[in-house]
């Protein structure tokens, strides 16, 4: 197994290089090329423009420009945001804690709802609980977050006056500060978490149903094992493969942020940074965020593959 992981990590390096190349080429070749637009922007100060030209070698062919970007990247130079006049890494780091906190909590919430509800619903298919869970799930992913967000604001902020709906970094420390940070994150976390829990519940339920009627489950029951033991030991482990796949798919988003939710609750996260950077053609920021995201995608794909092997030892990786 360790040999397999090592080999996969070795493959990850060229595959990331390839991904970065594609990202770069897409950005460079697309009409209205943000690079050239920024480079020919008369308002970009000459120093930055020179640095940009040096970094990207804009007069060079694309492959040379790419190599320059790569070289800067290897040296830890992430570039310079043109809109905010700050280094890209500073800008990203400024927004990272908020993103990890809010989006991460939302993912945790989604998991902690989806797995138990999905499993329980699958053990009693077409029961009242199952029907209710399904209906809520359908509503959950039919309604966009911009809508549920406002609904939540109307109910919890306006009607009940329990929670604030403008997310802002409060200065201070200690327990009141912690409580305030929790309080203002509740709504965005709920909106995003429930939205994701909805689809995940459906996946968990379906994966459980696929396994629960297999012969070996019946055998296990026939052996006289208790229901809980059957479900947890025999069914869940085998049903976890699609679930692990989904979680691995979701994890990079913890870094990437959630654009709409961030806008509704004014959360200064990576998602809102990315969207404003795209709209403002702030390419160094876009490239940096996207590339980090790509690394996370590849990493979590590898983790998922390793987990498959653990969940189902018959899956062999060569």
């Amino acid at each position: 197994m360790s040999q397999y992981i090592l080999r996969r990590l070795m493959i990850a390096i060229p595959s990331l290089l390839g991904i970065s190349l594609v990202l770069f080429v897409v950005l460079a070749l697309a009409p209205g090329d943000p690079f050239s637009e920024l480079a020919t922007n008369p308002n970009v100060p000459p120093g930055v423009q020179a640095a940009l030209r040096a970094k990207f070698g804009l007069d060079d062919p694309i492959y040379l420009r790419y190599l320059h970007w790569l070289a800067a990247m290897v040296h830890g130079d992430w570039g310079f945001s043109f809109v905010s006049r700050i280094d890209v890494d500073t800008l990203i780091l400024q927004r990272l804690p908020t993103t990890l906190y809010v989006i991460g909590s939302a993912q945790l919430l989604a998991l902690s709802i989806a797995i138990p509800v999905g499993v329980y619903a699958a053990t009693r298919p077409y029961s009242l609980f199952d029907q209710l869970a399904n209906t809520f799930a359908f509503i959950g992913f039919s309604l966009p977050t911009f809508f549920t967000g406002i609904l939540f604001i109307l109910v919890f902020s306006v009607k009940l006056d329990w929670l604030p709906f403008v997310y802002t970094e409060v200065p201070g420390s200690g327990i009141p500060w912690v409580l305030e940070m929790i309080r203002q994150a509740i709504m965005p976390v709920m909106v995003l978490g429930l939205f994701q829990a909805a689809s995940m519940t459906r996946f968990v339920r379906s994966a459980m149903l696929d396994v629960i009627r297999l012969d070996y489950v019946t055998t296990a029951r026939a052996k006289g094992l208790g229901q809980t033991k059957v479900i947890v030991k025999h069914v869940m482990r085998n049903a976890m493969i699609p679930v692990v796949t989904l979680i691995a798919l979701q994890m990079p988003a913890v870094f990437g942020g959630a654009i709409v939710t961030e806008q509704i609750f004014r959360i200064p996260g990576i998602g809102s940074l990315l969207i404003s950077s795209i709209l403002a053609n702030d390419t160094p920021v876009v490239m940096a965020v996207t590339f980090v995201f790509a690394c996370l995608v590849v990493l979590f794909n590898l983790i998922a593959d390793v987990l498959y092997g653990w969940l189902d030892p018959r899956i062999s990786f060569r």
Partner: peptide
């Protein structure tokens, strides 16, 4: 992996924008 790492909404926005 490549398509996954093109983050969906931003890429969508970028493509439509471009």
């Amino acid at each position: 992996d490549l398509f996954l790492s093109l983050p969906q909404l931003p890429l969508l926005l970028m493509l439509i924008y471009l």
